[in-house]
């Protein structure tokens, strides 16, 4: 791990897509060791908020700041501290699982912990298919592998969007086991509709669908 994140500050984040207001003044503060669940019906902006927290979307108004050892900055300046898994964030399907992991490790140029990677792969019983192209894997295996990719560089902020969707029971159990073992050191934010995933987190942030017509 580079330098550990101490906190993520979300300050009155608003997001609108054209005329549609999706998020309206979300504010919270997450410190290392805390875990939050973004909870709400479809269309309430859970995934959008998670993407904004990761720095993949720009909020219409408001600000996200990460804080690590006295330095604060925009999310992507701390990209090596972020581990994110979401249904629409893919890995390279024409590369094998091992090649994908290689790419991530080299592109980040962080010290690599091969034992930890193997452990993760074992936990999801993916070690046997390491050489297979990702495109040839089932949806469940892909989701498991995405989670492995999110965790492989030992991030100190875990942003997970429906992390166990498509997974079998063994996968869910493995995911829960890993996440709960990491939880005390990291900032965990999970966007989900799944009660089991919600149970990973200590606190929930409820999001509601905004009424149409903006905020006037």
């Amino acid at each position: 791990m580079a330098s550990c994140l101490e906190s993520i500050k979300v300050e009155s984040v608003t997001k609108r897509f054209g005329p549609n207001q999706v998020l309206d003044g979300i504010t919270f503060d997450a410190s290392a060791g805390e875990s939050y669940c973004l909870w709400g019906p479809n269309g309430s902006g859970k995934s959008t908020l998670l993407k904004i927290i990761a720095g993949l979307l720009r909020p219409s108004k408001g600000k996200i700041s990460y804080c690590a050892s006295g330095k604060t900055g925009a999310p992507l300046t701390f990209r090596n501290n972020i581990g994110m898994s979401a249904p629409d964030i893919m890995m390279y399907e024409d590369l094998s699982l091992a090649e994908n992991l290689d790419f991530l490790a080299k592109a980040r140029a962080l010290p690599r912990d091969a034992r930890f990677e193997d452990e993760l792969m074992d936990k999801f019983s993916l070690s046997g298919v390491k050489g297979r192209q990702l495109g040839a894997c089932s949806s469940g295996m892909k989701r498991k592998f995405h989670l492995v990719c999110a965790l492989a560089h030992k991030p100190s902020a875990l942003l997970l969007d429906e992390p166990t969707s498509y997974m079998d029971d063994a996968g869910r159990a493995g995911a829960e086991e890993i996440v709960s073992s990491l939880k005390k050191d990291v900032i965990l934010i999970v966007a989900t509709n799944d009660h089991a995933e919600k149970a990973w987190c200590e606190a929930a942030i409820e999001l509601r669908i905004k009424s149409a017509g903006g905020n006037r």
């Binding site: 990209r79 994110m84 991530l104």
Partner: peptide, 16 residues
């Protein structure tokens, strides 16, 4: 199209 743009954003610096 393959949904990997965000992976790149999360992994690499822009100039890289």
């Amino acid at each position: 199209d393959c949904g990997t743009m965000n992976t790149l954003r999360l992994t690499c610096e822009p100039s890289q």
